[in-house]
């Protein structure tokens, strides 16, 4: 199956100069964990996720997430978030961006998602963003096609 037939047809994205306050508003209102970062021509230049932000502003937080000091670290995290609210996405985004073409198939997408431990994979046509694919979508499609076959 081609990626264009299973991708989420949403091109919500941010510019590299978007600040963290706006980014968090977008993630929260869209109920997503990360977005592609694009330039003015809609070419994907990076990806930013909640994970990237937390890792940058409080590196220890993700390591101690299972420990009993989580609460104090959480308070620290919220303070740091406020301090960083006007910083730009380009400071935190992952620039080694992994994308997939809409004509590729679900096997390539699943491989890229699993091997790179990422949740959302931007889909491009001539380098411009046309959608996003997630592992959940791939699993859903595979499940549906299995049900049809059986």
């Amino acid at each position: 199956m081609k990626i264009k037939d299973l991708m989420i047809r949403d091109i919500t994205s941010v510019l590299p100069d978007c600040n963290l306050e706006n980014l968090i508003k977008i993630l929260s209102r869209h109920r997503i964990t990360g977005v592609p970062v694009v330039n003015q021509q809609q070419e994907v230049v990076g990806f930013i996720s909640q994970h990237d932000i937390i890792k940058a502003i409080l590196p220890n937080y993700l390591e101690i997430i299972d420990s009993c000091s989580l609460l104090t670290e959480f308070i620290q995290l919220s303070k740091r978030l406020k301090d960083y609210s006007h910083h730009k996405v380009e400071e935190f985004m992952n620039t080694k961006v992994i994308t997939i073409k809409e004509e590729d198939n679900e096997v390539i997408a699943a491989d890229l998602l699993i091997r790179n431990k990422i949740q959302r994979l931007p889909v491009v046509r001539q380098n411009k963003l046309v959608g996003v694919v997630t592992l959940t979508d791939i699993c859903r499609i595979l499940l549906e096609s299995n049900e049809k076959n059986s």
């Binding site: 047809r9 949403d10 091109i11 209102r29 869209h30 046309v130």
Partner: peptide
Amino acid sequence: RSSGITTNFWH
């Protein structure tokens, strides 16, 4: 989206 239309709304 499910009918094949791409969206880019501001929420």
